[in-house]
């Protein structure tokens, strides 16, 4: 009988104490850390997206996110809190720590093209201030396209098309001053204004377009264009194509503008289309990026991008219709 009790004791030890010690070790590890550990699973949207997709933390709380990717490569970013993990390889766990210093509702998103529905892979971090439980009311001005009452779903074709693709390099050599508000005015509108001005009669149409290209790039600056290029490569190129021609592999099956204009070709916008791009002001383009495409397949980026990010992407988009942007 003693042998039976011994054997039973060993089995009990192995099947009860052994697992209990594993969980105990994990509990000790978690409690001995000064950070609050939150496990997050990053799966493609088809497989459930973020889990959890809502995270609640407190202002000043030391948070450690442990992000596991069971399926494909993902990235993670909370733009407003400047928290990011560039790469979470499948089967790996990446940790990132942060302390939120202000209350609010902050979207987070995947930053790697994990699937055709990648852009749907988003979540929200709610940061509460225990001393002030109600979230502060958001303070922001309506976007510029709303202030200007631009219908961003309407077509705005340019009335004037340059003979050749405008070149900022050629424009620089003209030493021609162009005063224009490119945010509110389309390049086409700026051209029309210059053409109507007798002071520019000495310049032909192509020269005016070159001058506009140079003035535009001078106005937005090389740094903004470089920042826009990075965002574009990460977030836009998969659908709109590396060359901006709307031929990206992820955009092949998207309806595009046919949702609103059945006669338009399917697929993402083509930024090399001079008529569409020169007829659009920066405010219009910013509005489209900010709000998204209302059924076209274009995601909204307003909740993830800062204002500066939005304008920098618009600035980069102009490089598809204007040659020779300044090097950073």
């Amino acid at each position: 009988m003693k042998r039976e009790w011994f054997a039973l004791g060993i089995v009990a030890l192995l099947v009860i104490v052994f697992p209990a010690s594993l969980f105990g070790y994990q509990a000790w590890r978690t409690n001995s850390s000064d950070a609050r550990v939150i496990d997050v699973i990053a799966s493609s949207p088809e497989n459930g997206g973020w889990s959890p997709d809502e995270i609640r933390v407190n202002v000043g709380e030391h948070v450690r996110l442990r992000i596991a990717a069971p399926d494909v490569v993902h990235g993670f970013e909370i733009p407003a809190l400047d928290v990011r993990v560039d790469e979470i390889l499948p089967g790996h766990v990446q940790e990132v720590e942060f302390v939120a210093t202000r209350a609010g509702r902050f979207p987070f998103a995947c930053t790697r093209w994990c699937s055709v529905n990648h852009w749907r892979m988003r979540g929200v971090i709610w940061v509460s201030d225990p001393a002030q439980p109600a979230l502060p009311a958001p303070t922001f001005a309506p976007p510029l396209y709303q202030q200007l009452r631009i219908d961003i779903d309407a077509m705005h074709p340019a009335q004037n098309i340059p003979p050749r693709k405008p070149s900022a390099a050629r424009g620089a050599q003209l030493n021609l001053r162009v005063d224009a508000d490119f945010r509110t005015q389309s390049p086409d509108a700026v051209f029309a204004k210059l053409r109507a001005d007798a002071a520019y009669d000495a310049y032909d149409d192509q020269q005016l377009w070159d001058a506009i290209a140079f003035a535009y790039f001078q106005n937005v600056g090389a740094e903004n264009i470089a920042n826009g290029a990075r965002r574009y490569a990460r977030d836009c190129a998969a659908c709109h194509g590396e060359r901006g021609d709307g031929q990206g592999p992820a955009g092949k099956d998207l309806p595009g503008l046919t949702t609103m204009h059945p006669d338009m070709p399917r697929g993402p916008a083509n930024f090399t289309d001079a008529s569409a791009m020169l007829g659009a002001s920066d405010a219009l383009l910013q509005g489209k990026i900010l709000r998204g495409g209302m059924g076209t397949g274009m995601p909204e980026w307003g909740s993830l991008y800062t204002d500066a990010d939005l304008w920098s992407v618009v600035a980069f988009l102009r490089t598809f219709t204007f040659d020779d942007p300044p090097a950073p």
Binding site: A68, A69, P70, G91, H92, V93
Partner: peptide
Amino acid sequence: LFGTPAGSR
């Protein structure tokens, strides 16, 4: 049941 859903881990 309780570990990572990443099979290889």
